[in-house]
Every structure is written in structure tokens, then in C-alpha cells.
Nucleic acid binder design. Structure first.
Lengths: 337, 337
DNA sequence: CTGTTAGCGCTTTCAG
DNA sequence: CTGAAAGCGCTAACAG
């Protein structure tokens, strides 16, 4: 019996009818227009409560020509703590500007990323923050996003200019290898992962640069790539240890743990230095060196870049890149006798 | 010069004008209506490309009386891996139904949760999945959400019926304490956290139940609560250890690590058994028992419940509750000589 | 094959 | 103080 619009929710007209006024009056009451009589206001609010009416912000925004105040964040793997911290950083920074964050997972699929981008642009999100899944970034170019600005994270734009926040992958890889070389290691293996193409490549490049700078040639047989799967990573780590390195540099958390496990299982004694901090590192059995960086800060910077772009949409300056530093930390492992 | 609507993006009319057709024709081309001549189609698509036009899905949905295909997920702390896994579970389950997930962080603030709820309902999300920040759930009742269904996670509804997915907190607390009692411990401390009121209370209740069942009285002085902050938790853990327990049960990950650190620092020898799995547990110096559960599964169940509710919105069955089981796992710690 | 009219739910503008 | 008309961007329902 209650009058309802198609989608099942009452409309302003329903409220107006019940209160015996026009929908304009309802609109005014809801927006606290001062020139409304107390009695009318009461009647309207009564009808609102009775019907459980909530204004339709989408219709309102359409009429007002306003934006959605929505920003879409697309990450490759939400289960990875790096991305959840990233999301938190983005969210916290956007929230203070009254913007909402829509988080979507691309599961490392370029196809999904493209589909999501199209959808989000269609929904008129005000901006995109993306950890690109692949190398093809055409769908992120302004021509394809109807001008919706995009900020890339962790991987630089390919084939076009775009704002972007990176981690100092090269510097971190170089520093990790440098540490080990300083400690006298000469047979240092590298365990990366094939998916994170850019990231791993940079970290490896830094690793090799440190060898160059030390005047050493690096044995390519000591470089290996684990997969996305922890089990795969463990296998790769075991193989790598079998080649007899005295130390290993890893390109991410998963690989770091894989090496520690493989070493524990085989009883091999290797120094381990890897990317991403391990939050229980101080409680581990074995010593560990890590290249740590602030994932939340990455998110905050990306958000800020987007906000600046939104402010200046009329006269966009050149695309900018921001590089978040990494910090080397060492943990001693369990104190033994 | 390019004609553009207020928010800066071209509209269908702009495309129509440029292609020399009516907007209906553009609409048809975009939706692949077969009865459009090839040449017209080409002209329209040309104009679309030239202007960088993307259809406004919001306007379309308004006209069609369609829903938004959006579901809002509100969590108390996105930085906590539990919630990011939860989000992944929700996202993966909703995605297969073509629904998008909007993730928002309430930062444990009831006020923020209420504001977000109002906003999301106004935006006409199709459902809400909420980890409630506080005890006041009035804003989540159907009367306040204009009928938008809500599923609660981790904490049950208070003061109203609602779908809800819980973890077996009681059972887990009971099992953890039971383990330690079986091992002969008689002085077992409990470290909880005040914020997660319901969760901690249930875990403690289970802990005490195990003591009851063993015919033992538990000393209330052995119960303490750490804060949200890791430093605070460490302090509480240290105090607790100073009371000389032979074992500690912890209510969450943060507290587990706090106890391990405090024990390491003071050299105290205590057995530790706590809620939440620790992914490096097998690499730790010390042995550890945990109550583990599948956070992604919690998210999947919540999403499925919501989907069922959306299907049957006309004749809603009674609110349902689903309890995700916990599994006790033991890790041996570093093998010593 | 293509255009006109009307209206989704809301609000601005202009009249009362 | 309140209402009627027009229109945000789009599309169903009818023309032609």
C-alpha cells in the first residue's frame, strides 16, 4: 500500500503526498531551508520517519551537476598487507577532503583492471588510483578515462605520462646487496618474482649495481624467480640454496619467508636480506636484514597527488613522480647462549 | 570550444550534435542496437572517440530505475590483516554476482560509522556489511537504512535482529585455555583488548569456562587488557608477566606478539596461546599455540548472506547467524640442539 | 532506420 | 512561506 518507486524505496513525492505538500517543500525541509513553517516541517519530518525515507543522493547529484566524491582504488592483491596499508593511507588522506574510497581487487588481471576502469569511469568516480596489473596501460590514459585523472602506484606508466608514486626499488636492492658485500659475502643469490615485473626488475638492477660498484661480476645462475604461490616460492628457495650461496637477497616478503623456511629445513646457513619488513622479525629464530618502506605513506602520497590534480584540473602541470624511500633494518635473531 | 556539461565531461547530446544525429541514436549505438546503419554507427563512434565520451552510468541507472550494484563494507581497521582478508572474501564473492565492493574504514568510531551509513544509504548502495564499531546499532536497523539490508560481522546485533557472521570466540578461548590446562598449567593469565568488547568478552568467557570445567577457580588478577597501540599492549604484557603466570592466553595477534616480546625482554619462560594465527609462527624463536580461523571465509559468508537477503527482499526470513569455526594450531619454535 | 516525447528523483528559478 | 515548471543525462515507448 505504501507508495514506492521501482527500486522499492520511497521517493520525495511519496513523502510529499503523505505530508500533503509539494515535493519542493520536502526538498526544502530536508535541506533546512529556514523559510519553512514549523508545522509544515513537522508534518514533513513525520512523513519521512513514517516512510523511512532517505534522500537519493544520486538523483540530487545529477540535478546539481555535482561529482560523486568517489575515488576508486584498484590493487592487485588486497590480501597482501602492503596493499591494505596502502589502502588505509589513501583512505585516510581522501577522507579528510570528504572523498570516499572504493577499493577493488584486480587479482593481477589486466582484463579485470580494464573492465573495472571502464565501470568506474562510467560511474563518474572523480579519480583513479591504480597499481597496474600489467604493462598495457592504454585504458588508463586520459583519452580513455574521459579525463578522469589517474595516479599509478608502485609501477610507472608505460607509453604515456601519468602521475605516479614509486618505491625506491633500485636503491633498496642496491643497499641490501651492499650490506651483504660489506659483510664479506661474495656468493649472493637473488630470489624475485616474475609477476611484479617492474618492481623485481628494479630491485635486481640495484642488486647488480652494488656488485658492479664493488668491482664484482655476478653469477646469473644465482638469480631465480619464485611464483605467486608460497609453495612455489619455497621450492625456488630450496633450489637456490642448493647452489650454495652464502647469502640471499629476496624481492619481497613471501620470498624472504620462503628462504628462511628453506634454510631452516635444509639446515643451510645463509644470511638473508630482503624487501618488505617482517613485523615479527625481532622474534625470529634467524637474523634478518630488510628493506622497509612505509606503505601507508605511499597511499597518502598517491592520494595527495590526485587531490592536487583534481584542484588544478583546468591547467594540468606535467605528470609528476614521487619516490618513497626505503630504510634498511637489521634484526639479530634469537640470542643464543 | 568542445561542448561539455557542468562537471566537465561531454554528454550524449554533445556526441549527438557532433555526429549530426539525435541523442537517441547515440544511445542506441552505444548499446549495440542492431537496427542502426553502419554509416551512422561509424559517425557516432567517431564522435565518441573524438570527444572522449563515456556514458554516465548514474544517469542511466536513474532512468532505468536500476540499482547501483554497489555494496558497502565498513571495517574498524583496514590495516589489520584480518580485515583485509575479510574484504578480499567479501569482494571475491560479490564480484561473481557483478556487485562492486566499496570499502570504508570507521577507525573504531561509532560516529564515523553512523555518518558513513547515512551516506551510503543515500547513495543507494544495495547492501551493507559492517563490523560494528560500538554497541549502538540503531543506525543499522532497517528503519534507518531505508530497508537497505545489513549484515554484521564479528559482533552480533544489539537491540535488533540482523544477519550476522561470527567467529567461534567462545570455543576458541575455551580450547586455548583447555590446551594449557591439559599441559598442567595452573596459573594462566589472559591478555585482552578493551575495544573489541564483544570479541574479547567471549574469548575470556571461553577461557574461564575451561577453568570451570577443570574444576579450577581463576584468579581475576591474572586478567588484563592492552590497548589498540602495540606499545600499550607491550606494557600490559610486561605487567602481566610480572605477576608470574606459567602461561598466557591472548585475545588477538597484537597481544600475542606483545607477550612474546615481553617474555623475550624479561627472559620469562611462559607458554603462549593466543587468538589469530601468526604467519611466521613456524619461524619464531619460541613455541606458540594459536586459535586460527579463515578471515576470508568470514567475508565470503557475510557476502553470501547479503546476496540471499537481496534475492528474497520481498519475504525476508528471520535473521540468521553463522559461526565460523576456529582451529587450534601448535608451533614448536626454533629447534634447539 | 531514426526522431520526439516524457520522465527517473531531485532542485533551481520564478511565481505566487 | 509554498508551488509550478523546467531540466540534470539518459532511455522506453511511440511515432514516422
Amino acid at each position: 500500500m505504501t507508495p514506492r518507486s521501482k527500486n522499492g524505496k520511497p521517493t520525495m513525492r511519496d513523502v510529499a503526498a503523505r505530508a500533503g505538500v509539494s515535493s519542493m517543500t520536502v526538498s526544502r525541509v530536508l535541506r533546512d531551508d529556514p523559510r519553512i513553517s514549523e508545522s509544515t516541517r513537522r508534518d514533513v519530518l513525520g512523513a519521512v520517519a513514517a516512510l523511512g525515507y532517505r534522500i537519493n543522493e544520486n538523483a540530487r547529484a545529477l540535478r546539481l551537476g555535482q561529482g560523486t566524491r568517489l575515488v576508486a582504488l584498484m590493487v592487485t592483491n588486497l590480501a597482501n598487507p602492503f596493499y591494505s596499508r596502502l589502502a588505509l593511507g589513501v583512505e585516510s588522506e581522501l577522507e579528510r577532503q570528504g572523498l570516499f574510497t572504493v577499493v577493488a581487487n584486480t587479482a593481477d588481471s589486466e582484463t579485470k583492471e580494464r573492465a573495472l576502469t571502464t565501470d568506474f569511469v562510467g560511474r563518474r568516480v572523480e579519480g583513479l588510483i591504480v597499481v597496474p596489473a600489467g604493462e598495457d596501460h592504454t585504458h588508463l590514459r586520459a583519452e580513455h578515462t574521459a579525463g578522469t585523472p589517474a595516479v599509478l602506484v608502485a609501477r610507472p606508466p608505460v607509453g604515456h605520462g601519468a602521475d605516479c608514486v614509486l618505491v625506491d626499488d633500485f636503491g633498496g636492492g642496491r643497499a641490501l646487496a651492499g650490506r651483504l658485500l660489506d659483510e664479506g659475502h661474495r656468493r649472493i643469490a637473488f630470489l624475485g618474482n616474475a609477476e611484479a615485473v617492474y618492481t623485481t626488475a628494479e630491485r635486481l638492477r640495484g642488486f647488480l649495481a652494488a656488485h658492479d660498484e664493488a668491482g664484482l661480476r655476478h653469477d646469473p645462475a644465482l638469480v631465480r624467480h619464485g611464483g605467486t604461490d608460497p609453495a612455489e616460492a619455497l621450492g625456488a628457495a630450496a633450489e637456490l640454496l642448493a647452489t650454495g650461496p652464502t647469502a640471499v637477497v629476496t624481492a619481497n616478503n613471501r620470498n624472504t619467508l620462503a628462504v628462511l623456511r628453506a634454510a631452516k629445513a635444509s639446515g643451510a646457513r645463509v644470511a638473508v636480506a630482503g624487501f618488505d619488513d617482517v613485523d615479527t622479525a625481532d622474534l625470529l629464530d634467524a637474523p634478518l636484514t630488510v628493506a622497509a618502506y612505509d606503505a601507508q605513506e605511499v597511499g597518502r602520497r598517491a592520494a595527495r597527488m590526485l587531490l592536487e590534480r583534481l584542484d588544478t584540473q583546468a591547467s594540468p602541470p606535467a605528470p609528476r613522480t614521487s619516490v618513497v624511500p626505503v630504510e634498511i633494518r637489521t634484526y639479530e635473531g634469537a640470542a643464543r647462549g
